[in-house]
Amino acid sequence: MNFQRAASRILSTSGVPIVIALVIVIIVFQIMSPVFLTSGSVRDYINNAIPILLLTVGVAIVIVGGGIDLSVGTVAGLSAGTTMWALVSGAPTWTAVAVGVATGLVFGLFNGLMITVFGINDFIVTLATLNIAGGLLIVLTEKVPLQGVSTPGFSDLVYGNFLGVPTGFWIAAIIFVLMQFLLIRTVFGRRIFAIGIAPGAANVAGVNVNRVRLGTFVISGLLAGAAGVLLASRLGAVQAFLGNGYEFVAIAGAVLGGVSLAGGRGSVWAAVAGGLMLATLQQGLRLNGVDPVYFSIVTGLCIVAGVVFDRRIQQLVLGGIRKRSKSGPTPPAPAKLQETHLLGTGKQD
């Protein structure tokens, strides 16, 4: 029984199911094509995935707070554009980086203020900024050719090397650790969960719901800005439609990692694992010679399967344990509990 409870607790911890699934997928691909885990291959595809992973983390934080941010993809694209524009205009590397991050910050602030001050639905606001940022990038690319500069150090942001690991990895890892710490170990993070679980109750308990919500959108904007800088650094050129559609990959990754769209549930690790899962699947399919046109179909199926997997894994695993042990009390099935909760009778006297 202790084993059961322990298993139940571990499996219900945010992010554990997706990590298990990720390991299984990696093993399967390694068996199918032994070059999968060679260092160059892994480094390349993770390097390519890092900007979207940053977006995934930003979106996940907004979602945990009960919101949604659709603008991250084009904001990242625009941030890449402004970064390049600053470089083309002769700005030093660090100024260009600051311009890129600031672009994300401005859009995050704009989203957050429209939502909290004017009370506009977050879906609508971020759908609008998705189009605004996308449009601005097109205008920018028509005015200025966003390529052809070689500034010392800028490409090192991604391709540099520190202790044998590419700098892009370091930057991403530091951001992930900071964000996980912020979400799980700080007062601000606790309040994000509170407003995601029940904004009305959080408000009565003295949480400034609007301020916290604004904070989540600012973080998402900042991470989109950082993602844009890394995109610019990796690509060395920015074209007009960069970032289009990234928001859906980011949201999909977060959901796949078990971040609940209903709010109040999830972690940064889980979102990163979910994003890595999508990237790993694409890489595995590519190595096995699958035509890239099938990628989005597989991604879609994987999201559905992943969410079902996350819901059912506790039941499946614990059901197996129970059949073998045939003793001890029955733990309640999580999905069933959720059902009764919806009916409004989830209380136990």
């Binding site: 969960f193 509170a194 679980i197 029940a198 009305g200 109750a201 959080a202 009565v204 308990a205 109040g264 549930r265």
Partner: peptide
């Protein structure tokens, strides 16, 4: 239930 507890915490 609606305004008091934060059920998931």
């Amino acid at each position: 239930k609606q305004l008091g507890i934060l059920p998931e915490l």
